[in-house]
Computed example of a mutant assay.
Amino acid sequence: MEEIIRRFESGARYAYARICDSIPILDIEKDVMQKFDLNSRWAKDVVMRAKAAYDGAEKLVETGRLESPRKLIWGGRKNFECRSKGEITNGEWRRIRSNQFWSRGDKSKNGNLNLRIEPAEDNYQLRITIGTRQWEYCQLWIPEKFRAMLNAHLNTEPCYTVRVKRGKDDRYSVFITFDAELPTQSVGFKEGAIGIDLNPSGQAWAEVNVHGQLLGKGWINTPELQYARRGRRDWLIGQIAHQIVGLARSEGKGLVLEWLKFKRGENHGRKLNRIFNNFTHNRLIEAIVREAKQQGIAIKQVNPAFSSVIGRMKYQEVYPHLAVHEAAAYTYWAAEPYALLTCR
């Protein structure tokens, strides 16, 4: 396992440097195959990882957060500075830089040739290609709630992508990705909508009928989202998404969300900087959208510009019992009712 990680990550860094030198992709793939003793499919995946890193670096350059793609540091600048100061050893630095490998699936090859999932007696096993007709087998544990979905996919169209990543505790996590058909949309905007206003301290919602009249409102208090560590925060995001989508399903109305993005690079003070850094707004939006699509609930994202101001100055006078964030959530429906009606 560690040998595959070493060759894969070393090949990715080599390919990234060649991409920076504007060398053709096909030539890079051939070099990676020869220098790192990888088959053609491994080599293509290595170069694809390097190309993805290069595309990400270019976006950072466009936003002014990176001087040049050549300045990208594999393993992170913070860890690099720790290594420069002697705060971490060379071995630790190498393990940080090289901690994963992955392989794409192929429909024409009946699945994934380099990382294949196979049923075992009690669970599953992962077959890793290490050479020409040479494999290593690792026990793979799949949570019970995902087994039925995985079995159905393996029995019908076994094409999937597998990524193996070593964690800080030296345990390996396996991420399996495949395309799944979404259910038919069963809840739309025919009866109205529920507007959601997302904030670091909590999520406000406002329910309206098809004519835009307020029917209900509420506040989901999530103060822990501001301070929780990443693992806990990811769990909270999933719970929030499940609660919001559950509300939409119980009321039989679609969801209207914002697409607000916090401005980065500005100093808001130590406390607010931590809140804005931890409040992963896009990930919360993605979780709600993904959960809604999986349950067949219609969803629309609107421009939230000045929603709080409009809600406070216009709708709080009509509905004095509305809090400012609840008024902002109500504004999303009131701003574009006809656009939402066309989504039925």
Rank of each mutant, 00 (worst) to 15 (best):
A204Y: 03
V208A: 11
T222L: 11
I196K: 02
V208D: 01
E207T: 10
W205G: 02
V210S: 14
P183W: 02
F189T: 09
L225F: 10
D197M: 12
E191Q: 13
V210F: 05
Q185P: 11
G218I: 08
H211M: 11
G202C: 05
Q203E: 10
L214Y: 07
Q226I: 14
V210D: 00
N209F: 10
Q226G: 09
G216M: 01
A228M: 05
G195W: 04
E207H: 12
I194S: 06
V187G: 08
Q185K: 12
K217R: 08
A206T: 02
G188R: 14
L225I: 12
K190C: 03
L215G: 05
L214W: 07
K190G: 10
V208T: 07
K190M: 01
G202H: 07
N199K: 07
A193R: 02
A204D: 08
P223S: 11
A204T: 06
E191H: 14
N199A: 15
I220G: 00
L214R: 04
P183E: 06
I194M: 15
A204F: 02
L214I: 05
W205D: 01
Q203A: 09
Q203I: 15
T222K: 09
L214K: 04
P223H: 04
G188H: 14
N221D: 07
K217N: 03
E191Y: 10
H211T: 10
N209I: 04
G188N: 15
I220Y: 02
G195Y: 05
G216F: 01
Y227H: 13
S201G: 03
V210N: 01
P183Y: 03
G212V: 03
I220F: 02
Q213H: 12
L214D: 00
N221L: 08
G188V: 11
G188M: 11
A206Y: 01
G216V: 03
K190V: 05
A193D: 12
T184Y: 04
G195H: 06
N209C: 02
L182Q: 13
L215C: 11
G188P: 04
Q185R: 14
I194D: 00
